[in-house]
Design a protein around this nucleic acid. Structure first.
Lengths: 343, 343
DNA sequence: CATGCTGCTGTGAGCGTTCACATGATCAAG
DNA sequence: CTTGATCATGTGAACGCTCACAGCAGCATG
């Protein structure tokens, strides 16, 4: 009768205990644990039974010590944390990545590099090999931590195209440009011709690409580009409000606005309401993101959905491939137009 | 001239290398690393210099293997993830905990137990000792994972009073009841007497306590309790909207509403607007949470601020104390009334 | 001069794995 | 029957660290 350590929270069983229980050697147990190649069905069976009986769980520290892998990855958020932490997309991304990793039994370590101190600490932590790879969220350009990690050869996958990192870094992103094109085409199809745009920050790839899509479609449609129809924001609600006011002042004949984020679009709606304009009758408004803000807005926003669940899944897939030694490239995923009441 | 492994991402220096470099033994280096007791100033100096020169970083796996500690903690979110992930407070809490832990050089592992499978996997992971303790977010009652962890004697600190776990479990919470009292007192001080309430879910301690505070103050003030003034919601915007409609139908003479969350309060404001009522002139509205939703609302919400930064700090402090073997108790932190335009 | 205490240091053992290697078995081909 | 694969298994190393212990000073106390 084996003493199942019922009761006193004591030493957990080791691979040795399992081996003894199953009547095989440590090596065989280890082989079963790692894929089960070169193990007879008999032994396999015996080991699995012994594992179940003893409640054995592998000691990851011991394993990591010898393999050199940590079997964990970091989720690194640098720069302006406030922006991200208030962004619902960030949540969805974080959740998606955590779950995708969980499916591989890989824990996610959350790393926030706000201050210079934290940056250094985290960079050391990562380069010391305490994680096998990094999922990077940092829309901003020229991130010093990211550069250091790249230089050190740490597997790294960014969310969105990182500016200013060598072009060799892998990333996963929604097709911002194509999403913008869809939205502007949609506005054109409604008969609108004086289409304004509130862009995102133009030092981020998302901001740049969405504006580019806007210009492309207008050019295709033979609509002249009018720079009075372009104002730039920073994705915040307030900047959307200010942007709409500027647009109305510069181009009173405006009949539609493409806003590069839902949050800004909320601000735009507020400004338009204040100006006495009806949406969508007088003026159509298109957002970007399909965040909760889009449904909460009155009227509910027509917007561009970014495939966040696919993005997180792809980020994890690409990162694991990279950790496995494969060469990986950028992944661009399609967006989707979600039609609601504001257009 | 020492070969600083410049260039080819190769084996990192070990404690052995440091010892050789400093001209001392492994033991001495180890002692310096762990607090520096019983080390001469000379040796201390030499070791620190050697560490700097070699760029040594301790191998946590090797350390953990022998100490049995993992020097990491889990942040566990069970049950309805959607609710939390859309809740800005959750973000603040997560961020606060991550940073508080970072100050102790302790990584945070994010654990999401949505499905039954994930639950089991995570419970095994934790009880196997892969984390030293757990920060628990699970407003719901009778959480099976939490119970299992408690039973296994895993250090655990909950955010908010957990229902249905033995009373021995430590938790950190805002003083919901007192916050509610403050808000209702504030409404009374404005001359309002027909004060409605939209409660949170009554199977959560927060929901119960906030309602209790409301009733206490009314009783104190000698205002009769009228059950037509009480409706319950689930913290969602939609439930606030529905709740306000019910209140207006049941008690048309309503002159104030205390809403148990800002998100619900947004819904309440929308319903009141639709009903043609002016806020705060016809009816005052008080929220709870001081979330971004409070400022975004029109009019901006008077609300109760929960000290989230202090809550996260306390959670970490208490958890580390518990890991250190101390006995810990519940911590209740004071709230604050934030006056804006809605009252 | 013995004895003990205190501060500091080095040494071997061992934490629980995996990995490389050696050893058998079995079986097909020569 | 030998030879050589191929499969299945067991057996020492390590991996990098901490811990217990032993040892050696130095110094005060008996």
């Amino acid at each position: 009768m084996t003493m199942n350590n019922a009761g006193g929270r004591r030493k957990p069983p080791t691979i040795h205990d399992v081996a003894r229980e199953a009547g095989v050697s440590r090596g065989t147990v280890s082989r079963v644990l790692n894929g089960g190649h070169y193990v007879s069905p008999t032994a396999q069976e015996a080991v699995n039974a012994a594992i179940r009986r003893t409640g054995y769980v592998v000691n990851r520290h011991a394993r990591s010590l010898i393999t050199g892998r940590s079997d964990s990855v970091g989720f690194l958020l640098t720069e302006p944390q406030e922006r991200f932490f208030e962004d619902p997309n960030f949540n969805i991304l974080l959740r998606g990545c955590t779950q995708a990793l969980a499916a591989h039994d890989i824990p996610l370590l959350l790393m926030l590099a706000g201050t210079e101190d934290e940056r250094r600490r985290i960079a050391r932590y990562i380069t010391a090999g305490h994680v096998d790879g990094v999922l990077l969220v940092s829309s901003h350009s020229g991130d010093p931590v990211a550069e250091e990690l790249c230089a050190a050869g740490v597997p790294l996958v960014a969310c969105g195209k990182p500016i200013g990192l060598g072009s060799k870094v892998s990333y996963v992103a929604a097709d911002d440009r194509d999403g913008a094109r869809d939205m502007v085409r949609h506005l054109l199809s409604l008969g609108r011709r004086r289409i304004g745009v509130v862009t995102g920050p133009l030092d981020t790839p998302g901001g740049v690409e969405r504006l580019a899509g806007y210009r492309e479609v207008l050019a295709e449609a033979g609509v002249d580009f009018d720079e009075r129809l372009v104002v730039s924001g920073d994705y915040s609600r307030a900047s959307g409000e200010a942007g709409a006011e500027r647009l109305l002042a510069q181009a009173p004949d405006l009949d539609a606005v493409f806003v590069a984020s839902d949050l800004m679009a909320q601000g735009v709606l507020a400004a338009l309401r204040r100006a006495g304009l009806r949406v969508p009758d007088d003026i159509a408004v298109g957002g970007f993101d399909d965040s909760p803000a889009a449904v909460a807005a009155t009227p509910a926003l027509t917007t561009i959905r970014q495939p966040w669940d696919r993005i997180s899944n792809e980020m994890v897939r690409v990162l694991l491939a990279q950790i496995g030694g494969e060469d990986t490239a950028a992944v661009i995923l399609p967006t989707e137009l979600v039609k609601r009441e504001s257009t």
